[in-house]
């Protein structure tokens, strides 16, 4: 892709990120930060390509570390975000959920 097209993509993506997050309630700041942390785990794709093209032992070593770290970012980011969001529940029909039967 040409430089100008890349620049347009960069500009539009920046606005998208801003708009998607604007007006988010404080209660979701921590999960959202964790979620965006997961999304940049896409670096895994680049690390795979870099290691896939590495030739010297030095390049291979650094590439290996890169893929290792990137996989950690993607998988770890997913697991903790999912764990946090799973816990967010609204209350039932009346204001006291669970325990109602006891």
């Amino acid at each position: 892709m040409t430089g100008m097209v890349a620049l347009y993509i960069f500009m539009l993506a920046a606005f998208t990120g801003y708009e998607v997050i604007a007006r988010v309630p404080v209660i979701l700041h921590t999960p959202l930060m964790s979620g965006s942390n997961f999304v940049h785990g896409i670096v895994l794709v680049g690390a795979m390509v870099a290691l896939g093209g590495a030739q010297t032992p030095l390049e291979k070593t650094i590439g290996f570390i890169g893929v290792l770290l990137a996989a950690g970012n993607a998988v770890g980011g997913y697991v903790v975000t999912e764990r946090m969001l799973e816990m967010f529940k609204a209350s039932g029909p009346r204001s006291s959920p669970e325990k109602r039967t006891s």
């Binding site: 993506a13 920046a14 990120g17 801003y18 700041h29 959202l32 965006s36 999304v39 940049h40 896409i42």
Partner: peptide
């Protein structure tokens, strides 16, 4: 990640990286 996406000509990295870059700055 967005910058390295340009280097590798990888649109997924450019978009995801830049979105997180700006969303993260706002956050």
């Amino acid at each position: 990640v967005g910058f390295e996406g340009f280097v590798l000509n990888n649109a997924a990295m450019i978009i995801a990286g830049t979105v997180v870059g700006s969303a993260g700055t706002l956050l």
